[in-house]
Amino acid sequence: MDSGIIGYGAYVPRHRIKVEQIARVWGADAPSYKRGLMLREKSVPTPDQDTITMSVEASRHAIRRAGIDAQKIGAIYIGSESHPYAVKPSGTTVAEAIGATPDIHCADFEFACKAGSEGMFVAMSLVEANQMEYALGIGADTSQGAPGDALEYSASAGAAAFVFGKEKRIAECEHTYSFMTDTPDFWRREYQFYPRHAGRFTGEPAYFKHVLSCAKKIMERSGTTAKDFRWAVFHQPNGKFPMRAAKKLGFEKEQVEQGWLSPTLGNTYSGSSPMGLSAILDVASPGDRILMVSYGSGAGSDGFIWKATDRIKEVQGLAPQTREQLENDPIYIDYGTYAKFRGKIRKLAN
C-alpha cells in the first residue's frame, strides 16, 4: 500500500479508580478480580469529558505530529459506542475544533469496541484510493458497565487518533484483513443505559475466535509469523485476554508489553487497540513491524500490519506520549465520586 500513518496521538483522562474501591462497594473479592482479569485500576472521565472532548485532544496531538494544515484533511471518522448525542454527529464538532471544516466528509462509526479501527480502515482506504490527501480516523469511548457487573471493573475512557496520508509516513501499512461473523456476545438496545453481555460466552466463541482468526489469516496472507514482528497489540477488554491471545499466536511478552495498557487503563472500548498502537509508536524504531488486531462484539476483528519508517523518531517527542499520560500524576477517586462523575446517582436537576 502507498498510504499509512503520518501522525498519531492519544488522550488519557487523569482520574483513576482502583479495583479495590469498586469491589468494596459490591462485596466482591478484589484480589481475585485483580488476578482473574489482570486489572489494577482504570481511567475515569470527569463530567466535562466525553468522546468529543477526548477526540479533539487526541486529534490535536496527531495533527501536531503529522505537521500538516488541518484544512487539508478530507475526512474524519470517529468510532465510538458512547457518542454524546443519539442524533447529531460527533465528527462535525471535532472537525470544527481542529479547524478542518467545511471541505470535509464526516461520519460517526459504531461497532462495539471495533468502531475505532474501522474508522482508521475507511480513512486510510480513501487516501489509498486518491480520494483525498489526508484523512483522520479516531477511536474514543467513555463506556459504562452496570453497577456491580463485571464490566464495571474494566469500562474506562480514552482516545487515539491517526492521520493517514501518502507522503511523510511514520508507519507504512503493509496489509489489512478483517474477520466478521454474527455473534451475540454483547449488546445494548435503544434507550437502555447499560450494555448486556453473555457472560462466559464472551471469551472463546467471541473474543478469541475473532482475534485469533484475524491474526492468523493476516499473517498467513502476508507470509509472516510472530517472529517477523517487533510489536503486537490486541483489543484489551481486560488484562488477561490479550496476553492469552498473544501467547496462543506465538508472541513473547516483550512483543506485547508496550501496547498492553489495560492493567492500569482499563478497557477503552473503541480506543483500546488504537491507544495500544499509539504507545508502541511512541517507542518504535525505523523498520519495526507491528501487528494490530481489534475486536468488537457482534462480532469482528480488523487486522493491520504496520511498519515504522525513518521518520518515526522525528515525531515521537512532538506531543504527549501515551504511557506518560497514563503514568504521570493520576488523581485517584473513591466510588462515591466515581458514581457522581458517571451519572450513576439519581438526583434532582441542579
Partner: peptide
C-alpha cells in the same frame, strides 16, 4: 484543554 462547558439539561444542546 477542550471540555464540555455546559449542557442544557438532559435533552438540550451540549
Amino acid at each position: 484543554e477542550f471540555r464540555k462547558v455546559q449542557e442544557d439539561g438532559e435533552s438540550g444542546v451540549i
